[in-house]
C-alpha cells in the first residue's frame, strides 16, 4: 500500500503525467456538435460496431507496447516532452473547426506530427483518449462507433502517413516536403476511410456501394482537402520550431532513423 502511494506520488511529479492529466481534462471538455470525421452515436448497426472494435483492438494493444518501449528505450532526453507535445497538437487541431471552400466546415486531425516523431503505433493511444472523452462528455462520435472512428483517425491515418514518409525517404524527397505530405495524407485518408465505412453500411439505393462512396467522399473528403493542406503546412512549422529550439535533434526524428 505504501509503495503504491509513493509510486503515485512519483508519477504525479512526472511532467508527462501532468501534461496527460491536463490533456485529459481538456479532452473531457472538448466540444462541438459539428465534428466532421466522427461517425455519430448509433449511426452504425451493432454488427458493424463490433466488427470495427475487434479490428481496432490489436492496434491498440500494439500502441500500448510501443508507448512503453518508446518511454523506456529511448536515449533521447526529451522523449516524454515530445510525446506530450504531439498529444497537445492533436488536441488543439481537433478543436479547430475550419471553413473550407465547399461552404461547410471540418477540422484537421493533427496525427501527422506524432507520426513523424514516433511512427504510427502510439497515435492510437492519444486518439482513443480524445475520442473516448468526446463520446462520453460532448456527444461527439459515440461509444458504439468508437471502434470505427478510432480505426479511421488513429490507425489508418498514421499508417498511411508513415508509408508516405518511407516512400519519400526512398525517393530522397526533401525532409520538410515529406513531413508536409505525411500530415496531408494522414489527415485526408482519415476522411476517405470514414466515407468507406459509411458507404459499405449504407449503400445508395440506386447506385450501390460505389455510388454511396462517391457521395460520402463529396461530403467528407472534398471539404477536407484545403484543411489537410493547411495542417501539412502547420506541421512543418511546428517541426521547424522543434528543431530550431533543439527539442529534438534532427537525426533522431524517426523519419531518418538508422
Amino acid at each position: 500500500m505504501k509503495r503504491l502511494f509513493s509510486r503515485i506520488k512519483e508519477l504525479s511529479q512526472d511532467l508527462t503525467v501532468q501534461c496527460m492529466l491536463i490533456m485529459a481534462v481538456g479532452f473531457a471538455i472538448a466540444p462541438g456538435t459539428v465534428y466532421a470525421m466522427h461517425i455519430m452515436e448509433g449511426m452504425l448497426p451493432p454488427k458493424w460496431c463490433i466488427f470495427w472494435y475487434v479490428l481496432s483492438a490489436p492496434f491498440f494493444i500494439y500502441g500500448l507496447y510501443r508507448l512503453k518501449k518508446i518511454t523506456q528505450d529511448s536515449h533521447e532526453k526529451n522523449t516524454k516532452l515530445m510525446f506530450a507535445l504531439c498529444g497537445a497538437y492533436v488536441f488543439v487541431l481537433s478543436s479547430l473547426k475550419l471553413p473550407s471552400v465547399t461552404g461547410s466546415s471540418s477540422h484537421p486531425t493533427g496525427v501527422g506530427l506524432g507520426t513523424v516523431m514516433f511512427g504510427p503505433g502510439v497515435l492510437v493511444i492519444m486518439g482513443v483518449i480524445v475520442l473516448l472523452f468526446q463520446a462520453l462528455l460532448l456527444a461527439h462520435g459515440g461509444l458504439t462507433t468508437l471502434g470505427a472512428n478510432a480505426f479511421s483517425m488513429t490507425i489508418v491515418g498514421p499508417i498511411i502517413g508513415w508509408l508516405v514518409l518511407i516512400i519519400c525517404k526512398k525517393l530522397h524527397v526533401n525532409k520538410k516536403i515529406s513531413i508536409f505530405l505525411c500530415a496531408f495524407f494522414a489527415d485526408l485518408v482519415t476522411y476517405v476511410t470514414t466515407a468507406c465505412q459509411l458507404a459499405v453500411v449504407f449503400p445508395d439505393p440506386n447506385h450501390g456501394v460505389f455510388g454511396a462512396w462517391v457521395k460520402f467522399m463529396g461530403i467528407y473528403a472534398v471539404t477536407q482537402v484545403p484543411l489537410a493542406i493547411a495542417e501539412g503546412l502547420l506541421t512543418v512549422i511546428v517541426y521547424n520550431l522543434i528543431i530550431s529550439n533543439k527539442l529534438w535533434s534532427e537525426e533522431s526524428a524517426l523519419l531518418y532513423e538508422k
Binding site: G32, T33, V34, M40, S104, S106, T194, A212, I219, Y220
Partner: peptide
C-alpha cells in the same frame, strides 16, 4: 470567397445516411 453556411460536414453525412 464562398458563401456557404459552413455547417459541419458530419451533419451532412448524417443526412446522407
Amino acid at each position: 470567397l464562398s458563401h456557404g453556411e459552413f455547417g459541419g460536414s458530419d451533419d451532412q453525412g448524417t443526412q446522407q445516411i
